[in-house]
Structure formats: structure tokens, C-alpha cells
Amino acid sequence: MDTASFNQFVRDIYRSHAFIPLHEPRFLGNEKEYVNHTIDSTFVSSVGAFVNDFEEKMQSFANCQRAIATVNGTAALHIALLLAGVKQDDLVITQALTFVATCNALSYIGAEPIFIDVSRKTLGLCPKALQHYLQEQAFIDDQGVCRHRVSLKRISAVVPMHTFGHPVELDELQQVVKKWHLVLVEDSAESLGSYYKNQHTGTFGLVSALSFNGNKVITTGGGGMVLCQDEQLGTRAKHLTTTAKKPHPYEFFHDENGFNYRMPNLNAALGCAQMENLGIFLQKKRQLATQYQDFFADSEVTFVSEPEHCRSNYWLNAIICQDKAHRDRILEKTNQAQVMTRPIWTLMTKLPMYQQQGLHGDLSNSHWLEQRVVNIPSSVPLES
């Protein structure tokens, strides 16, 4: 790949000679008006009409039973895991190639991850690798509980992440999860607006988590959302995220350990305005992905396209380089030219807080991708 040509190509897309970020937010509509409304009303905290409005908009968009807004995506995943019944000392299966928040949410509960390989087609949890690991390392006990053969610990859930907005192989994963009596919890932090067989990601598992960090498709500054496929779970999510306070006009009574995880009205106001342009953002991101795909068509790098039967949001566009040396040259030359690119995450098994836990399957694809994947500028292009 001619990095000079690539740098110029990116600058032409964004019509800028200045620094090109990896992904910056766009505020094209009513953001200031709605945020100012919360300030004028003084309802800037977790009590306010925009919180409920944002939840309803997301519930309708994703077509789920309930959507509960939280302060960030990690908090949403933490609550989702609790709703799924994950408990201290449980084992939870996830991918080694993920953002650290996936595992951090597990650690809050005191659960331990089992790291399974990803698929090169989706960059997400591989159903075949999952089935192979369970066949070799797990069994179903007399009570119908999935347990690790050596430690006898309960394996309670599977947490795939839709990497960069590309859906995992959900049909196959659901089959394995059902066979082994596990609960599917989707880490959908990156996949707002992504679909698997015309169904929105985050609605296949019992619960899931979205993120609205400043670098996501839409943003609330910081924020997340728990998507529930059960009305009662949604009610419980609302209860847990509001310090488990029983409703009362003036008394303070809390019936269990809860969390101060509710999204403030000020952030929700920003989210409501962003939702009004979500369709435009997704359309422009697909157009950008098509431009990149054409640019890289005859090069030695591979552009990461949406998997079969999927419609990806192309949150972060990515390329796969020939090897680590090739990757490093691209990273160096683009960043020197003030065109921001980034490698994929360091594998969780290499981080000090998780490398000693030791439970993982074969991670050949994860290691292969770690050495080759580069994210390239993916902000929504502005009109000329």
C-alpha cells in the first residue's frame, strides 16, 4: 500500500489538511437546543424527560422489549451480566481479541473469563472454537449445569463482541449456547445499527449492552444502554441502576445492593438529538466503507467487509496487513502524516490482570489478527 496515496485519499474524503482523527462525533441537529433545555429546566441529572425519551427511541430502533440507559457501556455490560445470572467465581466465555471493558465488567462481579478464539470472517467469537473448547473442557452435570472439567466451576454465560460493528455468527453461536445450557450476553457496544439476518444486534441474547462513548456511531458524551428481551428483566435493570431504591414520594428505602448507574438527563438530551440523525450517519458510514473497499481493491491489504447475511454499521473501518512489520510501517507513516490509525487491541491474555488466569482455547486467529489489523479514519464525512 502506498501510504502517501492513502493519506491523500483520506484528506480528500474529509477535505482537511489538518489532523485527521480516527473517529470524532458529529453534531448536526438539535444537540445544543436539547442540552440547553436541560440546563434551563435545571433537570440535568438522572431525573428528566430526555432519559425516558432516549430509552424509548432506542427500544423502538433496536426492536427490543426494554432499553435502560446507563452512565457508560461498561456499566451496561456489568448490569447485563448480573441480569443473566452471572455470579462470583463463575467462568464466563468471551474472546481474547476484545476491548478491555468486556473483561472488566466480568471482574466487577468476581467472575473469571475463559478466552476463546475469534473467526477471521467476523473478527468475533468463533462458534466452532467455542464448541471445540466445551467438548474438550466442559460437561453438563446432573443438575443441568455446565461445568469446567478440571476446576468444576460453573460456566454460566457466553459474551461475544460484535467487533467494529461486524456481527458474529449468531445462529451458530445460539445453537452451541443452547446445547451447553449457557446464557448469551451480547457485547454490542460497537454495533448500534448493525443487523444479522435483518435483526438488530443485541436482541439475540437474553440481554446486551450498547455504548455511546464519544467515539461511537452516536454519542451521549459518556453513556450506555442495556437491551433486554424480557420486560421483567428491564424492570429489574431499571431498579438495579437506580441504587435499588423502592419508589416512594419521599422515603428512602433500598432493598438490595444497587448501582448508581443511571444516565443523566443532560447526556440523554444529547442522545435524543443524535438519534434524529442516526440513519444519516449509518448511510454515510456505508458510503465511506465502499470508498475504502474500492481504494484497497488492488492493494496488498484486505479491507474488512461485513460478513455474509449481515449489515454492518462499519463503526471503525479496518484493514488486514500482510504481517506485523507491514502493519507497523503503515501505522508509523500514517500517524507521522497526522492521519490517525491504530492497531487492534492487545490480546486480553497478554494483559497483567488476565494473563495469570490461564483458561483459554487455541487462539491462533486472535494472534494472527492482533499482528495485522489496523483501524483507519472512520468519522462520518461532512457535506462539502
Rank of each mutant, 00 (worst) to 15 (best):
G193E: 01
N213W: 02
I140V: 13
L173E: 04
P160H: 09
G144H: 11
S191I: 00
A209C: 06
K178W: 08
Q174A: 15
V217A: 00
S151H: 08
A138W: 10
W180S: 06
S151Q: 05
L134Y: 10
A209V: 04
N213K: 09
V159G: 06
V176F: 09
G205M: 12
H132V: 09
Y196A: 00
K197H: 13
G165R: 00
V168N: 04
L152A: 14
H132C: 08
H166C: 02
Y133V: 05
L206F: 09
F164W: 02
F212H: 09
V168G: 02
L182E: 09
E186T: 09
F212G: 01
Q174W: 09
T201C: 13
P160V: 10
S208P: 04
G202Q: 07
A138H: 11
V183I: 15
A129V: 05
S188H: 06
L210F: 12
C146I: 09
V158R: 08
I155N: 01
S151D: 03
Q137V: 03
V168E: 01
E136L: 12
T203Q: 09
A209R: 03
H132R: 15
Y195L: 09
S194D: 05
G193N: 04
F204C: 03
D187P: 04
S211D: 01
Q199W: 12
G214Y: 14
L170A: 10
H148N: 09
V159L: 13
Y196W: 11
L210Y: 07
D141V: 11
S208Y: 05
L182Y: 14
E186A: 07
W180L: 11
L184S: 11
S194F: 04
Q174F: 12
D141A: 10
H166P: 01
N198F: 10
V158G: 08
L130R: 06
L184R: 11
Q135V: 07
S156D: 11
F204H: 15
V145G: 04
G205E: 07
S191C: 11
R149S: 15
A189G: 15
R147H: 05
H162T: 03
A157G: 08
V217H: 01
G144W: 12
H148R: 08
L130W: 04
Q135N: 14
D141F: 13
D187Y: 04
F164V: 00
G202A: 05
A157H: 07
P160T: 08
V217N: 03
I218Q: 01
V217D: 00
V168P: 01
L210H: 01
Q143S: 14
V217R: 00
Q137F: 08
L173N: 10
Y196E: 00
E136N: 13
G202S: 06
H166S: 01
Y196D: 00
L170Q: 08
F204R: 05
V150D: 10
H132I: 11
R154D: 06
Q137W: 04
E136T: 14
F139Y: 15
K178I: 05
A129M: 06
V185S: 08
G202C: 06
N198P: 08
V150C: 03
L210Q: 02
A129F: 12
H162L: 02
L206K: 14
V168I: 13
V177F: 11
S188L: 02
K178C: 10
E169N: 15
V159H: 06
